[in-house]
Design a protein around this nucleic acid. Structure first.
Lengths: 200, 200
DNA sequence: ACAATCTGTCACTTGGCAGTGACTACGATA
DNA sequence: TATCGTAGTCACTGCCAAGTGACAGATTGT
């Protein structure tokens, strides 16, 4: 018989959930798979978390899924604030690329919520919305009046989400190689150029 | 007993495949579901197409999944060619939005190939790559030397793919309402602005 | 009319999944 | 040391999917 320690077992299950998600993807996430991974009986998922959904929720609150504001600005706030708007935005999106590429599970979720926005992804999504609001609250960027800032940043963020998530399974997109650093360098530089030209 | 017409049955199956994809999504695509939809026995999928993969391949070659060059330029080629590069590109991406939103199955595939790039989506993907190459071949756009044109158009196309596919299940992204025409208008106008500012 | 062939149907095996009820073994406490 | 609550195990049901082998009804050529 196993270790007989509820909290440790719960932790094992949460960890296993993350491993299954990263290795097999959201599609294969299930009580059987997670329990197998944790070498624990699936009934404990129901007992301790009320089911898979509860486990995912616990996982969502546990882990480091989404980058925080600090990671996105990646420098002391004062320095960041002193930069011109175009540069601020370019930095954020470039840092967002790195932040996402560092988080395979987050990419999995990004992809999955597009394919099948279900209850499970909702918990994970809510955390992100908070980040978005937090960001806007602290840094209401400015730019030329004729630019719809919200639409512009939606376009850029969508781009980054798509390309990072896609890079898990596809080597290229639109002729760009998104499997190697080279391609990402080009994309990052183009983001800078675009921000500069649009927001000046 | 049914109509006893092989070709008609094959057509029924192909059509059913599309219906299942549109209604239930790629996740629920399976021989059982398609056969049920076609009110035909699933064994015929194996006999006529060698399995689900073959059926999907047939479907991919059959339907109007991806817009053609004509749909993307949406005007006589001569007129299109006479426009400045910025305007050409803006038109293509704006038309791409409409073209994709008109094709629920295509959106389903776009989303699905991100979540799980499997054998089934590959066939559908190949057709698209052809379109991309065709487009570049016929319209090698020009712009300022400091702009990486391939990267820029990858960014824009990624954006469009993400937002259109996401709009199936999510009402908003990044504060933008992508469930109503209003939001799309704003995005389209922003695309025009961006192209103009970047490519001049 | 008969045989060969083709289209379509049915029934079955196998296997994975979610969820549940009954059980066992541990160990804290009195 | 006896007992009682809890952590963990096991075995089972019910469901649905993929794939297959055998069969029945229709069609065609001779």
């Amino acid at each position: 018989m196993a270790s007989r320690d509820k909290e440790a077992t719960k932790a094992k299950l949460i960890k296993a959930a993350g491993q299954v998600m990263a290795r097999d993807g959201f599609a294969k996430m299930g009580v059987n798979a997670v329990a197998r991974e944790a070498t624990v009986d699936k009934v404990l998922i129901y007992r301790y978390f009320g089911g898979l959904e509860g486990l995912i929720k616990a996982y969502a609150e546990d882990g480091d899924f989404w980058p925080g504001v600090e990671e996105l600005i990646a420098e002391p706030e004062a320095i960041y604030r002193a930069r011109p708007a175009a540069e601020q935005m370019a930095r954020v999106f470039r840092n967002l690329i790195s932040a996402l590429r560092r988080r395979p599970v987050t990419l999995e979720i990004l992809a999955w919520e597009m394919a099948d926005g279900n209850e499970l992804t909702k918990h994970l999504d809510e955390v992100r919305e908070t980040l978005g609001r937090e960001f806007t609250r602290r840094f209401g960027h400015a730019g030329p009046a004729e630019v719809d800032l919200m639409a512009f940043s939606a376009l850029m963020a969508a781009s980054v989400n798509y390309l990072t998530a896609r890079s898990r399974h596809n080597k290229s997109f639109n002729g760009m190689d998104i499997s190697k650093e080279d391609g990402w360098k080009r994309l990052e530089e183009t983001i800078s150029t675009v921000c500069l030209k649009v927001l000046s």
